[in-house]
Simulated scan of single mutants.
Amino acid sequence: MSNDEKPVSSRQAMRTIEGKSRGDNRFAGASGLLFEQAMAQTRMAVCLSDPHVRDMPIVFCNEAFQRLTGYDEMDIVGENCRFLQGPGTDQEQVAKIRNAIAEEKVIVVELLNYRKDGSTFWNALHLGPIYGEDGRLKYFFGSQWDVTDIYESRAEERHAKAIVREISHRLKNVFSVIGGIVNVTGRSMDARPVARKINERVQALGRSYEPTLDDAAMGTIHIGQAIRSVLAPYDPEGDRIRFSGNGTRTEPNAVSAIGLTLHELATNATKYGALSNGGGTVTVSWGHVRDRFGHSALEIEWEEQGGPAIEREPDISEAASGTGFNIARVLLEHARGLLDLEWRAGGLFARISIPIQNG
């Protein structure tokens, strides 16, 4: 802007715009007045720049623009929009703006801008050309939206996911170390079968946690992911265990009890039940229910079909007294949960119930 060029006020600029649009059409004046009032009253920060004057100065800004930036109207009018930039402004985004202006294109970018007091804000800038009735470019329109809160939330989410990935890596290492200790101890004590059983349970816990860590950062997890991961090794072909459930979520602290209980049920089915022959199947279903007191609970049902013929109905108390089921029951009790077993005509039926706080 040369020394002999004086900045005009936003109101003067609006009158100029109105005059240019008036012509012989009486409605044009009213239209210009309505446009001025609308731009002045809108809560979105708005400015207009004149591409026909050197350095494309701002010729209009509304009060929302002044509140957002901290500058007065006289500080803004006559300046190029770059005066809001600072050392932290991404020059790649600035280059996109320059290219859009040169090509008269509409563009939306996010860039760091600076207020008059030096504080920063993330600006979602919408920039586009305005044409006259003759089709010629008259102004560039810019609207600014403070998206600092959204941007900071994204940054926090990225940080949380990075932490979760690190926890996942370390947790896998912990399970591997525990498994190694169990194996070495089992060999030294000539207790390999015991070590193998312990290691299988440790691995089941690891599988139940692995696919849910990303979700855990949200405070709840998709229980279906944990269920499928725990049971995958028992159905390598994918045609023996059927799953029925939706996107039910529950607290991460329920995963240990659920994972180990399903591992024991699958191990029992592989040795004695529906997974011990070539034709049996297991259906696992889950969902939220209300208990008799009206409290929300996660309920998982395990139903076997087509297993070996049962000559006599087993004693449930005897079947459930094995070490694996005892461990599962202890974990479930810590989560205030229950495990019910029932022998039906088609095979074992089990129900896991855990009260929950969040759905």
Rank of each mutant, 00 (worst) to 15 (best):
C47H: 03
S296M: 11
A319K: 11
A191P: 00
Y272Q: 06
N173L: 12
I221E: 06
L331H: 11
R54M: 06
W145V: 01
V106H: 15
G347E: 02
T220H: 08
R344K: 13
F175W: 08
I352E: 04
I300Q: 11
E103S: 14
N358S: 10
V77H: 02
V53C: 04
C61F: 04
W122L: 05
A102C: 05
S296G: 10
A124C: 09
Q305W: 02
V255T: 15
V289D: 14
P51M: 03
V182R: 00
E251R: 11
N199W: 10
L213S: 03
I130F: 13
A204W: 07
V8E: 07
R43T: 11
P57T: 10
R82Q: 09
F27Q: 13
S2W: 03
A328S: 13
R192Y: 00
A64P: 01
R344T: 11
E63M: 05
G306M: 00
Q305T: 11
Q85A: 03
G245H: 09
S176P: 00
A309Q: 11
R43K: 10
S296A: 14
L338M: 14
S176H: 11
D315P: 04
F140M: 02
R196A: 12
S49G: 01
I97Q: 05
P51Y: 07
G287R: 08
Y272D: 01
L332M: 10
N99Q: 15
G307Q: 02
L205D: 07
Y139V: 00
S208A: 15
H334D: 13
V184K: 01
H263R: 00
A254W: 05
K116G: 01
S188G: 01
N99M: 12
Q85S: 06
A335M: 13
V46Q: 04
K172I: 07
F121N: 04
G324D: 05
Y209P: 01
Q41H: 13
A195C: 01
L125Q: 04
L213T: 02
L84C: 05
I101F: 13
E152M: 13
V147I: 13
K172A: 10
L332E: 05
E92K: 13
V8N: 05
R165L: 13
A319T: 12
G78W: 05
G294A: 08
R187W: 08
S276L: 07
L341G: 09
E299N: 08
L171Q: 14
F243H: 07
E299M: 15
G359R: 14
R82C: 01
F35D: 03
E133H: 10
